[in-house]
Lab assay of single mutants.
Amino acid sequence: DHDVVPEDKFQETLHLKEKEGCPQAFHALLSWLLTQDSTAILDFWRVLFKDYNLERYGRLQPILDSFPKDVDLSQPRKGRKPPAVPKALVPPPRLPTKRKASEEARAAAPAALTPRGTASPGSQLKAKPPKKPESSAEQQRLPLGNGIQTMSASVQRAVAMSSGDVPGARGAVEGILIQQVFESGGSKKCIQVGGEFYTPSKFEDSGSGKNKARSSSGPKPLVRAKGAQGAAPGGGEARLGQQGSVPAPLALPSDPQLHQKNEDECAVCRDGGELICCDGCPRAFHLACLSPPLREIPSGTWRCSSCLQATVQEVQPRAEEPRPQEPPVETPLPPGLRSAGEEVRGPPGEPLAGMDTTLVYKHLPAPPSAAPLPGLDSSALHPLLCVGPEGQQNLAPGARCGVCGDGTDVLRCTHCAAAFHWRCHFPAGTSRPGTGLRCRSCSGDVTPAPVEGVLAPSPARLAPGPAKDDTASHEPALHRDDLESLLSEHTFDGILQWAIQSMARPAAPFPS
């Protein structure tokens, strides 16, 4: 592969990997390779389809078979030569091979799209000592099968071997295949498990690692696999990028399955594409389908809103127990993405979901129960707010008499603000006073009005108090039968009158 990737590009890729991570280095090298001529790309395919690569990765054979028959990708048995050289000459001794072996032994695996480039050397060096003999053996194999790289107009793939297949390693990572398949204008990513390549439709969760975000852009890794992070704060999961590491605690105790298979379609829109997988259930989501939507993949363990709600429900009964003089119970939860139609709101002032922060849900004790107040519409209280300059209440639009249902020339009671006709409430011909108009209920007259088809109010509507207090003497005590009587009149003013009279009014101040 030294004929494909020059030394300066190799060093530039290593520097970019240390600065921005393996995914960015892979993407940059792939983009550079696509700008080369067809001879360089053909050399790339020839390096990929060597015999030892085909033996190690069985899924490469179907890719090789898909090439046109007129494309010669065979390799000479006596060494490598550029395709432009007409004579089959043995190339001179390859010093770059020693360079590659020494550099890969030092860096474990470079971040390139060629056999030198995919593992994360920093994480491997940190986690190597417990498994040094086995990992050293794996390093000797890295130059042979560490990076199976493929690129063409139909298929483009980048393979990364790992030393996680050490025997006896619980939940060992089998390997990473960062794979971009450009077929019919689409893009897919796969993962390699035990020599087999699994596409998103049959993606397997190998051991402790999972394909957290099938994305090839942005600074985030394709698999949430930063070796420096180790395990999740809650004892979460091992990262795919942690090559040759000792077994780590796999999943939280509440995880239903340690080796679950995540779905390959969004649980909201039932469509495929780039998904984020939940650590607590097999569901996966688009970032845009979450509520609120996320802009980037959160670091650490992530769970959907259903799993978060289940966790909150487990903690909430203990938080609601009476604990005198104790601060509110704080339950730190990872930043969760909410699927459509589901929402768990945190306290005000918290950062938005999706940031690399930890939301704190506070379970406050329930407030003391209070008697429910009568629910009145805002339009129902409008007549009470229509007060004239002299303190006389004006008529609201649409006000109707509670007896006849007519809204023409209605009066407004100064005591309960109900609309009424003087002739309907006082049919006996009582003279109307000039000021202080009161309806039949507030004036103490319980004589029913002779209106055909309208039920008369119940005599129990009024329960006047002592006459010594004029204001308190007109406080009506309405009961269920009074409400039914008012409802039978089918008037809004009657219902409003009952609601206003049912509310307690402050006692009249004593004259000074």
Rank of each mutant, 00 (worst) to 15 (best):
H474A: 09
G244A: 15
K362T: 08
A463M: 15
T408F: 07
A467N: 06
H286Q: 14
G436C: 15
D469I: 10
C307T: 15
W422Y: 10
D482L: 01
Q313K: 08
G453D: 06
P450G: 15
Q257F: 13
T357W: 15
N262R: 07
C413S: 01
G398S: 09
S378T: 08
S306H: 13
C277F: 08
S305W: 08
F492E: 00
L384G: 06
D255R: 11
P256S: 14
L376Y: 09
S488I: 05
T447Y: 07
A419D: 06
L384I: 08
R438C: 03
V446D: 03
C424T: 01
R323G: 11
P368D: 11
A251L: 10
L290W: 14
E484K: 01
R505N: 01
S299E: 04
P433M: 06
P466K: 07
V387D: 06
G336A: 08
P397D: 09
S488N: 09
G453W: 15
K468G: 09
I500V: 04
P256A: 09
I276V: 12
H382K: 06
P459F: 10
L483S: 05
S378Y: 11
Q325T: 09
K468E: 04
A504R: 01
H382L: 13
S473H: 11
G405T: 06
E263Q: 11
L384C: 13
H415R: 06
S339Y: 13
P397F: 15
R338I: 02
C281A: 10
M355N: 05
C277I: 06
L359N: 08
T301N: 08
G434K: 08
P253G: 11
R423Y: 15
L486R: 03
C307W: 06
P450R: 10
C278R: 08
S245R: 07
Q242R: 10
E330N: 11
T408H: 11
P324W: 12
M355L: 12
P282W: 15
G273R: 06
C413P: 04
C266D: 04
P433Q: 10
Q497F: 01
L287M: 10
P511C: 09
H425R: 05
S306W: 09
P448S: 08
A353I: 04
S299H: 09
N394C: 11
T414L: 13
A449G: 14
E452V: 09
R461A: 03
E314T: 13
G465E: 11
A504V: 08
V312N: 10
V446A: 06
L294D: 09
S254C: 11
A251F: 13
S305K: 11
L486G: 03
P450Q: 09
S299V: 14
P292R: 08
S378K: 12
P282D: 11
S485K: 13
E452N: 06
S458M: 14
L395D: 05
H259K: 10
S441I: 02
G388D: 15
I495V: 07
F510L: 06
E274C: 06
G398Y: 05
A284W: 15
L478C: 03
E263P: 07
V329I: 14
S306A: 12
S441H: 05
A472S: 10
K468T: 10
D356W: 02
R283A: 07
Q325L: 12
P335G: 11
E484I: 02
A251T: 08
A417D: 15
L455Y: 14
V410R: 02
D406W: 13
E321H: 11
L478G: 07
S245V: 11
T471A: 15
R283W: 13
P448I: 03
P374V: 13
C439M: 01
N262C: 10
G465D: 03
C404E: 04
P365M: 07
S339R: 12
D271H: 12
L287C: 08
H415D: 06
P506H: 04
V344I: 12
I297G: 12
P332L: 11
A288R: 08
G434W: 12
H479C: 00
V344S: 09
E475K: 02
L437F: 09
Q242I: 12
F426A: 02
E321K: 06
G388Y: 00
P348I: 06
E484Q: 02
P351T: 12
E296C: 15
G388A: 08
L352E: 12
G429Q: 10
D493P: 00
P466D: 07
G354F: 15
L376K: 08
L364Y: 07
G300Q: 05
P348V: 12
S379F: 14
A449D: 14
Q316V: 12
Q497T: 11
L496W: 14
Q497K: 04
L250K: 13
S431F: 07
P322L: 11
L487A: 03
A340P: 12
F420K: 00
G375E: 11
P509E: 04
H474V: 12
P351M: 14
E326H: 09
H474F: 15
H286P: 14
C439A: 01
L290K: 13
S254L: 14
G346Y: 15
R270V: 12
P372Y: 12
P383S: 11
R400D: 08
